[in-house]
């Protein structure tokens, strides 16, 4: 049996999204570890319960830690650094997730009108959710 021939990667959408999925996945994991470590350094061990720490780890938004013993959330927990981190997580997460949804949709549909329609729906959902997320981040 001959092994199948693998075409050389070219810079098309499939290859770019394949690469982006890996890179964004690693980035989100790194940002989560960063938020987790920073929370512990800032005193999470004595100030919040486990669920609150996890909420902050997955998305370092100040409203995620309001339900805790932190005396003043604005000191360290709500600033531009965390806003940038949140925007990065939201962008990587939304793009990674909606691209995954596109892959699933394409797995269960044939090329044609409905597949294009569903791809358009996924694209619009991606734009909509990303914009809403940035709005919420800058407003909280």
């Amino acid at each position: 049996m001959r092994s199948r021939e693998i075409p050389r990667p070219s810079w098309n959408l499939e290859y770019l999204m394949w690469l982006f999925t890996r890179l964004s996945g690693i980035s989100i994991a790194v940002l989560a570890v960063l938020a987790f470590t920073a929370a512990l350094i800032m005193g999470a061990r004595n100030q919040m319960d486990f669920e609150t720490l996890l909420r902050w780890t997955f998305f370092p938004n100040p409203s995620h830690v309001l339900d805790s013993e932190i005396p003043d959330v604005t000191a360290g927990w709500a600033n531009g650094f965390w806003q940038i981190t949140q925007i990065l997580i939201a962008f990587f997460g939304a793009t990674h997730g909606f691209n995954g949804l596109r892959v699933v949709v394409e797995d269960y549909t044939n090329p044609g009108f409905w597949q294009m329609t569903l791809r358009l729906v996924v694209f619009l959902l991606w734009i909509f959710t990303s914009l809403i997320a940035v709005y919420v981040i800058l407003g909280s």
Binding site: S63, A90, G93, A94, G97, F98, G100, L101, V104, L125, T129, I132, A133, Y135, V136, S140
Partner: peptide, 15 residues
């Protein structure tokens, strides 16, 4: 799929 549904609903609800 569970996470994309959860996160999207959560973002819209927060908004």
């Amino acid at each position: 799929l569970a996470m994309i549904i959860f996160v999207s609903l959560h973002v819209v609800a927060a908004f």
